[in-house]
Amino acid sequence: MPSTVNGAPVVVGAAAPATTRSAPPRRRRMSSTRWAALAFLAPLLAYLAIFYAYPLYRNVELSLHDYTPRAFVQGNAEFLGLANYADVIASSTFGPALRNTALFTLVSIVAQYAIGLALAVFFHHHFRLSGLLRAMFLVPWLLPLIVSASTWSWMLNSENGIVNSVLEAFGIGQINWLTSPDSALWSVIVANIWLGIPFNLVILYAGLQNISGDLYEAAALDGANAWQRFWRVTFPLLRPVSAITLLLGLIYTLKVVDVIWIMTTGGPGHASLTLAVWSYREAFGTGQPDFSPAAAVGNLLIVIALAAGFVYLYLQRREERS
């Protein structure tokens, strides 16, 4: 696989593993270099231990104890073992949250991918202004999430939103996008799809650029029309890039809190509550923080994300071997 494809995810924030494949050792003994390497790596290692490993350890600890706000300060929380996990899974919120997470994630990434791919193919035909317009498409991705989410909230406002106003012109009555249990989840999904299109466009466009133009010419000479060229040439050759895009999308979308929290706070009721938002709500969203179940939910989420991550790495390794 041409490596520019690897380059795109590097830029957009989730890098392909930039492992330096160890070259054949030029000298057997390189102890001074090794010490230098260690010295240059020391800040990172210390950073990872203090600001990654330790918070994660604290999080596991939270999930195994009964931390009340008071116990937080005094540090004498009762040890519960896995009871928090059992409570969370048995909770009546767990089912809806899991279902919402699955819907939110799958619908989001499939739609983002499909739209992103269509746009990438479209922009791949160079035309006047194509570079500029493609750059403009990045805007939603670069905006702070609170900005996009609050704009969407106002657009979807029941009484004064532009969306309902347009629908009204077509004779469709008022829809309570964010406040009705039937539509809240779909509203946040739409906003999230909008947010994810640029990311998919960037990666898939980079992938398209690596497909040799000769192949298209050959296919055209063989009498393939544009539709056939897409399904017989573009799509199969884009498969590795597609797999990476979808898996990165999956990992990102599982983590989403801001968009949903700002638009609906997971409500009404549990209507748009995902696992990540549930965790946030328990810990920080109410007047009474309940950190232990929140941490348990968060850790379950890590397990799901890691599982997705391992699939990603497995596919990538397989791709590199072939």
Partner: peptide, 25 residues
């Protein structure tokens, strides 16, 4: 180096809400 690259990749998968709780604690 390979293991470290892998760790960094895993680090990017951790949800911020989990990190936030750890940092809060």
């Amino acid at each position: 180096a390979g293991a470290l690259g892998f760790l960094l990749l895993v680090a990017q998968m951790i949800p911020s809400v989990v990190m936030a709780m750890g940092f809060y604690a």
